[in-house]
């Protein structure tokens, strides 16, 4: 989690630093092009609504994997600022690594106390609202002839989501050498989301989005569970919620499309 935060902060800091650092070097050029070069943008979004769709996949799946499908509605208050609402559903599952841990633990009979794993909550339905800070507008000269216009933006917001969790270690019903049923939980939890991305304009009304987005939510899991007394009627068997569960952050790469009215 801390690494992802460092990643986000580094990227943001670079953008901010760059903004001030090039100001001096661009002064002489600014005398030439004055304000026209930036005032007359080809694709203006100010005071325009937009709708879109996004698909996100997990950058680094560890014990869980998410594929998040979102629709979005946004309003561009200014060229550099927008408000956006996103809602959707994440198809999530446990990874093969999680399955291996399950199998291995079933063979470990010398661990009488169970401390369950962190970061096992899987997001399903989700909705967030946030602001998009998009001060950078530019263009690239692709393959010498093809011009591509883009906006670089930072997104921040929050909302809520529906989560479910399946334990890797708390088996409620043993079936021979396997487990027929693991302990599961469901909850609704607040979400905080940040994103850094590009919007590539293909047309005045069409844009393709590419962004790195984090979804952060509260983690929780049981520790000190008496393995011998676990049952469907007593799933946590004297265990208690971990006091330092912290926050789970799922980082995704999002691909999306926006239609600007």
């Amino acid at each position: 989690m801390s690494v992802r935060n460092v990643f986000q902060m580094t990227a943001l800091s670079l953008v901010m630093l760059a903004g001030s650092a090039w100001a001096q070097s661009a002064e002489d050029e600014a005398e030439l092009v004055e304000r026209v070069a930036v005032r007359n943008r080809l694709y203006m979004v100010e005071r325009r609504w937009e709708v879109g769709g996004n698909v996100g996949f997990t950058l680094l799946p560890r014990l869980t994997d998410h594929y998040n499908f979102n629709v979005s509605v946004g309003y561009n208050v200014a060229e550099w600022f927008a408000v956006e609402l996103r809602a959707g559903y994440a198809y999530s599952r446990q990874t093969s690594l999680a399955d291996q841990v399950k199998e291995a633990f079933l063979q470990q009979m010398n661990l009488p106390r169970i401390n369950d794993f962190s970061d096992l909550w899987q997001m399903s339905a989700n909705g967030i609202v946030g602001v998009r800070f998009q001060p950078i507008y530019g263009k690239i000269n692709l393959l010498a002839e093809l011009p591509v216009h883009f906006q670089l933006y930072f997104w921040a917001g929050g909302g809520a989501g529906l989560f479910n969790r399946e334990s890797l270690l708390i088996c409620l019903q043993r079936t021979g050498s396997g487990c027929g049923q693991y302990y599961t939980e469901t909850k609704v939890s607040p979400i905080v989301s940040f994103a850094l991305g590009f919007r590539f304009f293909a047309h005045e009304k069409h844009a393709v989005r590419l962004e790195a987005r984090s979804w952060s939510f509260l983690d929780s899991y049981f520790v000190n569970v008496d393995r011998a007394n676990v049952s469907a009627a007593n799933p946590t068997a004297g265990g208690m919620q971990s006091r330092d569960a912290g926050i789970t952050t799922v980082t995704q790469i999002d691909l999306g499309y926006s239609f600007v009215f």
Binding site: G19, W22, V33, V38, R39, I136, K139, L142, L143, A144
Partner: peptide, 19 residues
């Protein structure tokens, strides 16, 4: 560096970059 471009920060300054 297969391509390069430039962008504006807010409404004022231009910067050049390359990929």
């Amino acid at each position: 560096t297969p391509f390069y471009g430039k962008f504006a920060f807010f409404e004022g300054t231009l910067a050049q970059f390359s990929f």
